[in-house]
């Protein structure tokens, strides 16, 4: 699960990839908010949202299969709700509840997979920065993202080593081994952090990273926002007005 795996489709050239990250972020926030707030009984609305996401995924030239495969992570949570719905309400209500949760979670998942698959994380952060997310958080996030794959790889290596040597142990001993891995990993990570800090200090790091922001909000971005809002908002309003809420 390396960096390259997540960056597979970020270099594709498409209309969606070229959009300003701020436009895409705003779109995703809006989309998710609207989907989450749509009443559960508005089946048509959910179908239309799905259609809208499909169109965008096609336009972004990202294979549907990949997005679907990645969206399967909600299965566990949906199953949990389905299990607990045994205790709740009539059959009709159960089905509606499961539909509600599945449709909303899945649609939002498709939207955010589309966003992250088509936008490098640095660009997202740059966009978030100009949308007034505090500078410290941006810097922290960008550093964390940098270290993430490095340290994950280290964990995989240590796990592999453990699997080769540690078998047939009792559960408690197994937990102890994992704990030692975690402790070792922490010391390694911490010392890496100290080293990186010292290295950055030598290169005149003052707690902030200043990069030249070349983001420009173009007419296509305005058009994209207007069109998507123009499609989503009426569906949302209709769904609220014309759905009988119990």
């Amino acid at each position: 699960m390396g960096h390259s795996y997540f960056d597979r489709y970020r270099q594709v050239d498409s209309f969606f990839h070229r959009l300003d990250p701020r436009a895409k972020l705003l779109w995703m926030f809006f989309f998710i908010l609207v989907v989450v707030l749509t009443p559960a009984q508005a089946y048509t609305a959910f179908l239309l949202y799905l259609l809208a996401v499909f169109v965008l995924i096609r336009l972004a030239k990202i294979p549907l299969k990949v997005v679907f495969k990645q969206s399967l992570i909600i299965v566990a949570m949906v199953l949990m709700v389905a299990f607990f719905s045994i205790f709740k309400g009539s059959l009709e209500q159960k089905l509606l509840l499961i539909f509600n949760v599945t449709a909303k979670a899945w649609l939002c998942l498709l939207a955010s997979i589309l966003l992250t698959a088509s936008t490098p994380f640095e660009l997202l952060l740059k966009g978030a920065q100009s949308l007034r997310v505090p500078q410290v958080l941006i810097t922290l996030l960008s550093f964390t993202y940098r270290f993430l794959f490095l340290i994950s790889e280290e964990v995989s290596r240590m796990q592999k080593a453990r699997k080769l040597r540690d078998f047939g142990n009792s559960r408690l001993k197994h937990l102890k081994t994992i704990g030692h891995i975690a402790g070792n990993l922490f010391v390694r990570s911490y010392e890496r952090g100290e080293r990186v800090y010292q290295a950055m200090l030598l290169r005149a790091f003052k707690g902030e990273i200043n990069t030249y922001s070349d983001l420009r909000f173009m007419q296509t971005d305005v058009g994209f926002i207007l069109i998507t809002t123009g499609i989503m908002l009426p569906i949302f309003i209709f769904s609220i007005l014309f759905t009988t809420q119990y």
Binding site: L140, T144, L150, S189, Y190, M200, F205
Partner: peptide
């Protein structure tokens, strides 16, 4: 300027 330290620990928690 301990930003890298916090970040590297966050990456550690993620990996752990």
């Amino acid at each position: 300027k301990q930003i890298p330290l916090i970040s590297v620990v966050a990456a550690f928690v993620f990996a752990a």
